[in-house]
Computed example of a mutant assay.
Amino acid sequence: MKHLLSVNNLQVHFKTFAGEVQAVRGVSFDLTAGEAIAIVGESGCGKSVTAQSIMRLIPSPPGRYVAGEIFFDGENLLPKTEKEMEIIRGKDIGMIFQDPMTSLNPTMKVGHQIVETLNKHTDLAGEAGKQRAVEMLALVGLPNPEKRYGQYPHQFSGGMRQRAMIAMALACNPRLLIADEPTTALDVTIQAQILELMQELKDKLGTSIILITHDLGVVAGFASRVIVMYAGKVVESGTTSEIFYQQRHPYTRGLLASVPRPGQEIRKKLSPIAGRPPDLIAPPQGCAFWPRCERAMLVCREVQPDLVRLSDTHLVSCWLTHEYASKGATIRS
């Protein structure tokens, strides 16, 4: 099966006064045309850096691509020049950023910002560009799109600004849409509406989607596959069903335990993951999760586990999947 996107052993570092932060440490995954996947994990695990790397938006300095490949439609994006990437951004790959208020230009009318994207990547201009912008605002469910076309971002609510960002990202019919925390700071009702809208657009337009989120609860029913990241690495990946019902990594289980579920007793406390993520200036020698893992073994501290394939779709990086783990392995006290 041909992949629309293939990320292979991506490594991204940032130079700081304290040292070099290893933000992404060998991430690999694939995406087929028309598929929706989710990348989940705590803040600081490398999700957004991975997403921005696909768009080649990492500023250099301080960031640098240490190793890896990012193939989009068979072409490696990493060697491309900035001028070549400007053609791809917006036209072939669109992105919805975390905060629409800071991503939208407060001095320009929303409709004009969409037309600006159309002018750069298509032949639409003048009245034709305006009509296309109005159509996009209507497509994302904004009421009275003709009026909204001439309004400024501050005249939109948070949910409306997010919809406007989606309209801008989809204006040129990109084949890939990257949604970086698109529901952050929105109430649960608007969150559901935004996710439902993205699902409808995927079904109608056949757009592939990468959803970046820290909340596993929002991916159920949206993504076909889930990639779990921790400390700059992929620790588990699989179908949504495998991640929710057959998860094998303690970190994945911790994420699920910290999310309220339908039918759960109101008074039952959630179980947050104890401790804090490691310092990526000097990552642990072994598994990065071992200091927070209740089932950590001595080997976890010393050796980084490989990604083990449990099925055609399910991979996990954990020593607990080893054949000796259940046969007398020494567990840390």
Rank of each mutant, 00 (worst) to 15 (best):
L10T: 01
Q11W: 02
F14D: 05
A18V: 09
G34P: 14
I37W: 07
G44W: 01
Y65G: 11
V66L: 12
E69Q: 13
E69T: 01
N76Y: 00
T81E: 11
T81R: 06
E82Y: 00
E82W: 00
E84R: 10
M85C: 06
M85S: 11
I87R: 10
R89D: 06
G90L: 08
K91Q: 09
I96F: 03
F97S: 09
D99T: 08
T102G: 13
P106M: 02
M108D: 05
M108L: 14
V115A: 10
L118W: 00
K120A: 15
H121M: 08
G126W: 01
E127M: 12
A128M: 12
K130N: 08
Q131L: 13
A133R: 07
A133Y: 03
A133F: 09
A133L: 12
M136P: 02
M136S: 09
L137A: 08
A138D: 15
G141L: 04
Q151K: 05
Q155M: 15
G158T: 04
M160S: 07
Q162W: 04
M165A: 12
M165F: 00
M165T: 07
A167V: 11
M168Q: 11
L170F: 02
P174L: 09
R175Q: 15
L176W: 06
A179W: 05
D180K: 09
P182W: 01
P182C: 08
L186Q: 09
V188S: 07
V188P: 03
I190G: 02
L195S: 10
M198Y: 06
K202N: 15
I212Y: 04
G217E: 07
V218T: 15
V219T: 15
S224F: 01
R225D: 14
I227N: 03
M229P: 01
T240E: 14
S241V: 10
L255T: 13
L270F: 04
L270H: 06
I273C: 05
D279T: 10
L280P: 06
R292I: 05
E294L: 12
L298C: 00
R301M: 03
R301C: 04
R301I: 00
E302V: 12
P305K: 11
P305G: 13
V308A: 12
D312T: 13
S317K: 04
C318S: 12
C318R: 08
W319Y: 09
W319E: 04
W319A: 11
H322A: 15
R332N: 11
